[in-house]
Design a protein around this nucleic acid. Structure first.
Lengths: 345, 345
DNA sequence: CTGTTAGCGCATTCAC
DNA sequence: GTGAATGCGCTAACAG
């Protein structure tokens, strides 16, 4: 990566390095217009591209913002990524991407890598987990983040404070009211459903999943309904599919009418696909709701009831677009939870 | 972003800077084990994180790979991004992300920014355009890329060579057989359809779109069919929706049976949604096929006929995961193009 | 095997 | 207003 340097430009323009620097990169001191032109022309002629690394080193600020997601191809994360990217652009920064599959150990590595690159801030989009097996890695992650903050870094977390963080200094948490919204959803569903409820959740310990489950149960309780059974599975489409297969059997054999709450849209789609493969139709034989209101999934039929979350905005906030810290969502009841008329729902 | 430096570590460990460098960052020369331990302990105690900027400056290789997409939230791009990210991880690099909305001017800026950061390579995922209005910006983009390559950079392009590149040095093009695959699709559809064909395409000049249109027409011709009418619209869901509204009218009034080819899946979904809103059902009243085989859309019903493209692999290749340069796809006929039995298709 | 030295490309005090 | 000098944090030739 050899390119022409500032001193080459300076020499060609017949000025000093300092002067060239002043005209090419904004400085408070303003060189004369004629000399400035000479420098600009020289730069142009040499195809000068300032070395951001060197600049960063000299003024110790990299203009980088690190983003950590579980999987960039997951529409939930890519929507957040869009928001982060937008905020970065406004701040004249670039975003550094890391996908970690949700493993705290890999997240820790990513944080270290971002810190090494002296990222101005780091956004952690993925849900953290409190599983025992992750305890050690989580501690490592927290330590790495704390150190990063202590060195002046800013971190934006979506959803939950980082487990084990020893300080709040430098942290910005974008609170997502998962629990409240899930409770809202439960209450609204309770209004129209006499059926039993089942929750298809992610692995225990995943905060996002746990919050939504807790909220849903609370909502049911507030509506005077018994708690829903909870099925634990993978926090993705495949997990939903597996759960769907299990549920299909129950629905067809026991002819129970069930209202299913999958803790995210992608899982809900998986459940639906599995049910359909077994001849169980939504909303004829069972109803289902998801969470997130993923844009790409809105044309799905039957239209999926869900909870809208302003994902892009969440990304913007986590990236520090504005100081505000919390967002809100709203229940979207659609076709997938419409109990057929005249049915003993 | 103040953090402890190598020299602080060296001092605390009572060794020289060079020695500290050798033990902490891989070097061919190996210091003694006891001294190495001292250094590592000192580093650990100080929470030393190497400054990647400084390292990059010193050995002029940044370990960065730049990725340019139109919109990271578009599943097509996020799938490619996953591949790039994977390749980057294997190469021990990090990916820098830029979204440009497809504007060549913004792409040029992104390339400049990547060049400034001395990215080891740049991947351009978005389709380039040959519209007259973009000519100037395209020239600028080509110039920027050429310069980048001349300075030793590598660029990976998916689909098409960059318009106006003056050299092939440093370029790696991942050829996507859009035209051939679209022709395959057309031939297969011609087998089962007596109906007329309509193509819902992106704006003229967009290479990806144009190739698919051309291929489709060629396939029809080879099957002895008249050329399809082409509707130009936005290369996204909204564009598809608009086209769908127009088509709905024609389908319901003229009761023509139509087989629609939308040049990508997202557009196909838009078309389908519009048709549905007007009471036109797929595949009962019309049939439709897309392109890309987007993963998130596979559970869509009626299942969308499309052309599978190994997007993640494309990303890997463009990022230089391996030297191979071309990929292949395959036609996936599914429910959306199944002509109802006994119907005069 | 270890320490010294000289840059990498640039921003920024200082003198002039 | 402009130029010379210093340092950002680190790697890589060199000496020792």
């Amino acid at each position: 990566m050899a390119a022409s340097t500032l001193s080459e430009v300076a020499r060609l323009a017949g000025v000093s390095l300092a002067t060239a620097s002043r005209v090419l990169n904004g400085s408070s001191r303003k060189p004369a217009e004629d000399i400035a032109d000479r420098v600009r022309q020289a730069a142009d002629k040499l195809g000068y591209v300032p070395n951001a690394q060197a600049q960063a080193l000299a003024k110790s600020s990299s203009g980088l913002i690190g983003l950590i997601v579980h999987d960039i191809a997951d529409p939930y994360f890519s929507a957040i990524a869009r928001g982060v990217q937008g905020a970065a652009r406004e701040q004249n920064r670039m975003v550094l991407l890391a996908s970690t599959s949700g493993s705290p150990a890999e997240e820790r590595e990513a944080v270290a890598a971002f810190a090494a690159r002296r990222a101005d801030s780091i956004v952690i989009a993925g849900s953290r987990s409190a599983r025992d097996e992750d305890a050690l890695a989580n501690a490592g992650l927290a330590a790495e983040l704390d150190r990063y903050c202590r060195n002046g870094g800013h971190v934006g977390v979506v959803g939950h404070p980082v487990v084990g963080a020893s300080t709040t200094e430098g942290y910005r948490v974008v609170e997502v009211p998962n629990e409240e919204l899930a409770a809202d959803l439960a209450r609204e569903l309770a209004d129209s459903h006499d059926a039993g409820f089942v929750v298809v959740a992610g692995p225990e310990g995943l905060f996002t999943s746990d919050d939504r489950v807790r909220g849903f149960q609370r909502g049911l309780a507030e509506a005077g309904r018994p708690a829903a059974e909870v099925i634990r599975t993978g926090f993705n489409r495949a997990g939903g599919y597996d759960a769907g297969l299990a549920l299909a059997e129950r629905i067809t054999s026991a002819k129970d009418r069930l209202c299913i709450f999958a803790v995210n849209d992608v899982m809900a789609i998986g459940v639906t696909a599995a049910l359909r493969s077994k001849g169980v139709w939504i909303p004829r034989d069972a109803t289902i709701a998801g969470f997130d209101d993923i844009e790409t999934l809105r044309d799905f039929r039957p239209a999926l009831s869900t909870v809208f979350l302003p994902l892009e905005e969440i990304g913007r906030l986590a990236a520090g677009a504005t100081e505000g810290g919390s967002v809100t969502g709203s229940v979207k009841l659609r076709r997938s939870t419409e109990v057929p008329a005249g049915d003993p729902a």
